[in-house]
């Protein structure tokens, strides 16, 4: 008799649970929390994610999709506390937008089996460690880098091209190597000079690096991470072409920014959200590529036209008929 009662209770409870889950998925909005290492307006890595969040919200509507964020979480221990806190507050998806957060995520995710987590940039979902609720995402930034490299080689008159990066790791390393490969594939005798600033925030040093690149003859520059805003200014001032990455940097120097590789994280996030809604909490990795539209090359024709006209006026281009 007692056993029977217990069973009934369990059945009732389970049905309530299933009911509420099934019902809840439709009734309540999908809630996302994002933790980002720099500020949402850095014109680089963090902004690319913030823009994706805004885009998804616009598409799905505020009723259906809500998000909160913690920006400038460069202190990893604080980010870990934020990740844990968001998870315990029942967000459907917690995104740790920085590769430095991975080791914290591995510790936290198993404690919240009903929450989905995502992190990048990497393809490691930790499924080899038996964790099933982590997604991973990355951008093949070398692809856009290669495209920009090809264009840069074509546009360069001096055959010298300057590159400015933060530290030689992760996303920045991939972009720079892709760019270099693109240049050399197009113009094997071109010279690609690379300088690393040693930080993501030293705007002044990045700008002096740009000056030095131009001084040794570079007429096309590129750079990655948020400290390059100073270098873009130098490129503009000295009339040297610029290729951007991570976010559209045209607004900083419309005269010289030729093209930007832009990350569209919605390509990774939309299927992720779909999976979470269907009940899969993690395990897959998403890669932004040119093929799946996650990487876009935003070309600013104005700069190209201007440059070509200028070159013809200055006699740098000889039109052979």
């Amino acid at each position: 008799m007692m056993k029977c009662k217990k069973n009934i209770i369990i059945i009732v409870m389970i049905s309530i649970l299933v009911f509420s889950l099934g019902f809840g998925a439709n009734a309540k909005a999908f809630r996302v929390a994002v933790i980002m290492p720099s500020s949402i307006n850095d014109l680089a890595f963090s902004q690319s994610m913030y823009d994706a969040m805004v885009a998804i919200q616009e598409e799905m509507g505020k009723e259906e999709f809500q998000f909160v964020y913690s920006e400038s979480m460069f202190v990893v221990a604080d980010a870990a506390a934020a990740i844990r806190d968001y998870a315990s507050e029942g967000y459907d998806l917690v995104i740790a937008h920085g590769s430095q957060y991975g080791s914290s995520l591995v510790e936290i995710a198993p404690d919240f089996p009903n929450t989905s987590f995502a992190w990048g940039t990497t393809v490691n979902t930790f499924s080899d460690q038996g964790i099933t609720n982590i997604f991973a995402y990355e951008a093949r930034s070398e692809e856009g880098g290669y495209v920009s490299g090809v264009l840069a080689a074509k546009l360069s008159q001096t055959g010298i091209i300057g590159v400015i990066g933060p530290i030689e790791t992760g996303d920045a390393k991939l972009y720079v190597e892709g760019f270099k490969a693109g240049v050399l594939a197009t113009k094997p005798d071109a010279q690609v000079n690379i300088s690393w600033i040693g930080s993501f925030s030293d705007v002044a040093l990045a700008s002096e690096a740009a000056q030095t690149h131009i001084n040794v003859g570079a007429d096309v520059l590129t750079g990655t991470a948020q400290m390059v805003v100073g270098a873009i200014g130098v490129a503009r001032q000295r009339g040297v072409l610029w290729f951007g990455t991570q976010a559209d940097q045209t607004s900083l120097a419309p005269e010289v920014v030729v093209a930007n590789q832009v990350y569209d994280w919605t390509v990774a996030l939309k299927p992720m959200i779909q999976l979470v809604r269907e009940g899969t909490r993690g395990g897959s990795a998403y890669v932004l590529t040119l093929a799946n539209g996650g990487l876009k090359i935003v070309v600013n024709q104005e700069a190209l036209v201007r440059k070509t006209i200028q070159d013809i006026i200055e006699g740098k281009i000889d039109i052979e008929l």
Partner: peptide, 21 residues
């Protein structure tokens, strides 16, 4: 020295950037 350091990097002299920095 900082300016020289940048120049060393730009010229591609083969020292890890961390050391020139």
């Amino acid at each position: 020295v900082n300016a020289i350091q940048i120049w060393i990097q730009v010229k591609g002299i083969n020292i890890p950037s961390d050391f020139t920095l």
